[in-house]
Design a protein around this nucleic acid. Sequence first.
DNA 1: TCCATTGTTCCAATTTGCGCAACAAACTAT
DNA 2: ATAGTTTGTTGCGCAAATTGGAACAATGGA
Lengths: 304, 304
Amino acid sequence: MDKLDAMRLFVRVAESGSFSAVAQQLNVARSAVTRQIAGLESMLGVKLLARTTRRLSLTSAGAAYLEKCRVILNLVEAAETGLAEERQSARGPIRMSVPLSFGIRHLSPLLLEFATLHPEVTLDTEYSDQRSNLFEAGLDLTIRVTRRLEPGDVARRIGSSRTVVVASPDYLARHGKPRHPAELTNHECLCYTGASTQKWDFVVDGQEQGFPVRGRLQANNGDVLLFAAASGFGITYGPSFICADALAAGHVRPILADFVVPELGIYAVLPGNRLVPHRVRVLVDFLASRLEKQPPWEAAKRRR
Amino acid sequence: MDKLDAMRLFVRVAESGSFSAVAQQLNVARSAVTRQIAGLESMLGVKLLARTTRRLSLTSAGAAYLEKCRVILNLVEAAETGLAEERQSARGPIRMSVPLSFGIRHLSPLLLEFATLHPEVTLDTEYSDQRSNLFEAGLDLTIRVTRRLEPGDVARRIGSSRTVVVASPDYLARHGKPRHPAELTNHECLCYTGASTQKWDFVVDGQEQGFPVRGRLQANNGDVLLFAAASGFGITYGPSFICADALAAGHVRPILADFVVPELGIYAVLPGNRLVPHRVRVLVDFLASRLEKQPPWEAAKRRR
DNA sequence: TCCATTGTTCCAATTTGCGCAACAAACTAT
DNA sequence: ATAGTTTGTTGCGCAAATTGGAACAATGGA
């Protein structure tokens, strides 16, 4: 039995508080997890986890061992990272979670290129807007597009995007072009489902304000909203990396351009509690170098 | 493959400079060592050891990795030691080397008792006066009886013994009882083979001096020398833990008692470069507690 | 130049580890 | 209170990995 693997497993079980969850994340049978932990315990001669079928809790010995495992695993990672740096190459698995629209549209070609550039790197990417499963799932990084990071996040800004408000030319012809955000209440607005309050933020007189909007269509996907807007169904409010192509093609027109909020940040969010492997740093560097200077969507927009 | 085992193997190979030697020490096939190291290298993607069939040398990457392995392995050991302390018990293997005469006569019963006291400890003891193979052989500790430690040794004094000079009553009757060390040149002296110069040390006028001795019998074993002395063959000079029984039984008598050198130290010598496992500390504590206050040989002597 | 030693490679035999399925315990919901 | 669901454990058959032995190649000394 590989003791290091057992330690990794133990750390994850302790963090997630469940054998089953870890087994599922790793695509192994529950019994495998049980046996690894049991094996570790018998090797050490101490029970690490007090387990009732419903809840796990760390033994005092388990708590002590957990901390030491974290240190050791970090050092192992550091040792291999150091070697990889000496070799000037990246290798090993990277598990990441990326937002759906941005990921498919702009990240996937970059990831493909990265995979070609570094043949010994394995990429396991989950395209999802669920941010619930963060690093408990054992992810190496998450790409997040947001106005502000949540406190406690360890992140590197790898690019940015503007927010644009768009509608199709024929919608604007039919309903008129709003001159001020306050007029939006009289328009058909296409909103994200997830938004807690149905308000769109604008900057008016140097002040950021939320303006209430209403609409009959909601979706949890920006592309769908854009498609609806391009079809003349209403006005949508989204990041430029989604709307750029449609704007360039003339399917939609920008409105309220003088009021749009400051730019969105595109961040690589990293786990703060553990060491960042070399391969992950290389990937983040690569993404940043491609996104921060000449974002593809802005380039497309200039072609308009 | 257990990466930690591979690391341990790598460290030992790097230290001993030979695959075969390590394989022999661990009682595994040479091929196993080869494969472990090769596996480690392929995992890391770097060659760690530059090997010609006759000589090994560390790669620059290997040297860097070696240091990190040492740190990691120490931490793993420390983590388990910490757990064992919490459990208040010792467990695991201890490999040690002990001097022949002292080991067989006084240490082996203590080790037997220790093994009974700690059922989960495994003792692998090599009885030998060869001190050539120190910690390269992967020993956890060595017991050494000596006047002074060599510089650099990390040791704990666990007991002491005096040096006595003895001869049988009939020898003394035949040849006379020496009154001063200088008279020894006219006597038949039984010497250790190993001694570089055939001199015995005494304290004369507060000064330690070596006095030349000669004799027809030499041996590399104190018990044999004592037996020869008890048989009336000559005078021998040895530690009290060897001679005590014969003195108590009256087979030999002490001579030159006013000149004998300061006491010998009995030391547990530990590897300075790596962490001392809990079980080893417990063993050393145990030995010290049994030897330092009431050494069995001194007790026997008092019964005289 | 021959020879002994050392590291590597190949192959059969054993051991190890996995997933699946049945089981027992514990918390939830009706 | 009771049925139901979830969770951790254990037994079993099978596949994969690991081991030791032997043949091989390369290196340095006599």
